[in-house]
Simulated assay, not measured.
Amino acid sequence: MATTVEHDIRRQRRNAVAGFFSTASIRQLEPIIQATMSRLLERLEETAQAGSPPVPIHHIFKACTSDVINKYAFGECFAFMERADFGKSYFNATDMFFGLNHIMIFFPWFATLMQKTPGWFVKAIMPNVAELVDKKSWWIDRVREIRNSPNPERIKSTIFEGILNSNLPAADKTDTRLASEPQLVIFASEGTTAFTLTAAMYEILANPAVLERLKAELCTAVPDEDSIPSFSQVDGLPFLNAVIQEVIRLHPGVMDRQMRVPASQPVIYQDKNRSGREYVVPAGFLVSMSPLCLHLNPDVYEDPYVFRPQRWIDNPQLARAFLGFSRGTRSCVGMNSARREMAIVLGTLFRRYDLYHGKPGRTLELYDTERARDVDANFDMIIPVPAKGSKGVRIRVRN
């Protein structure tokens, strides 16, 4: 779906899964997120009680987002939240896969070769991606099991209902193709959302005034600090949603340049700052831009590098220059589910925990974390990657 160039074919493929992410459908996601959050809180409590070293929070968030999207898409998950290392070996394998991004872009035949190479051979020459190869086999096995299930409700509870019942040609309904779209959804939902959640933890804890205002809003909307908020409790919270919007602006989960090609006629842009100046993009001419090119533009965002959620409340028109989930017909199909997942995770954590001030209580504290080194994008591997040698955002949890 994501790499389909021809507009009409891509629209058909997108429509087959779009219903799975409609406002009505993602209500089924709420209990999955809440159950996963409950386990996440337990793991944080265990960390605090054990007096263990600071938590690399990105490992926990990756486990959380992966379990959520797999459970939603397949009805089953890898239960990374139960593993002592939160599935670190699997995520290291996916990071290595993304690290091959530039090779695959400039040498497309390499991507085709990787897809067609037998799994046992890939594992032999690249043992670091072994768990990813195993998970790919798991996805295909789930496709076959769901397709052949005598229980019609089994299909309805997964992402495959829309695809199998669509008007897509038979070639788009093979086991391999059926596994490809959910695999894309998994990749697009676990690492990207986890990266933005990790950045949010840094920005909120590094800006006490933001945390104080966020907690005040959450205390009003969620009276019980031990509860896990519902969609209805977090959907309409203006400051929480402004925090999420500002985090995505500064730390978008996808760094890859988003490409557009005027198909049949040129596109003409008038320069508003210089009268009479215009730019013409000829038909068939490819234009691409990373979200950060726009999100850090000082002509659009005042003090663009500063984390300032209030800007979205003061000037809602800024949304016109927001590219965090792409735009138009190529926009992210799962952006509503991603926003809600981030809202519940952040709402739960910051309703329960405060910033550490040397006093007892449930608190969180950044540990040896620098934004430029551990949060900001230093490399574009489709997903943003921090500086070499970074240990990520680390947090000390106290009860």
Rank of each mutant, 00 (worst) to 15 (best):
T4K: 04
D8T: 12
R13M: 09
N15E: 07
A18V: 05
M37N: 12
R39S: 05
L41Q: 14
E42T: 02
P53T: 01
I57G: 05
H58Q: 14
V68G: 02
K71T: 15
Y72L: 05
E82Y: 03
S89E: 08
F97I: 04
V122R: 09
K123P: 03
A130W: 02
W139I: 02
V143F: 01
R144T: 04
E153W: 03
N165L: 04
D172F: 03
K173L: 04
Y202S: 03
E203A: 08
P208Y: 15
P208G: 09
L211W: 07
K215I: 13
A216W: 03
L218N: 14
T220Y: 05
E225S: 15
S227T: 11
F231S: 10
G236P: 00
L250S: 10
D256M: 07
M259Y: 06
P266A: 13
V280A: 05
P291E: 07
P291A: 11
C293G: 03
H295I: 03
R308G: 11
P309G: 13
Q310L: 11
A319N: 11
A319Q: 13
A321L: 10
G324T: 07
R327H: 10
C332R: 00
M335V: 03
S337A: 14
R340W: 05
E341D: 02
I344M: 12
L346P: 05
L349E: 08
Y353F: 15
Y353E: 10
G358R: 08
T369D: 05
D376I: 05
V385F: 13
G392M: 01
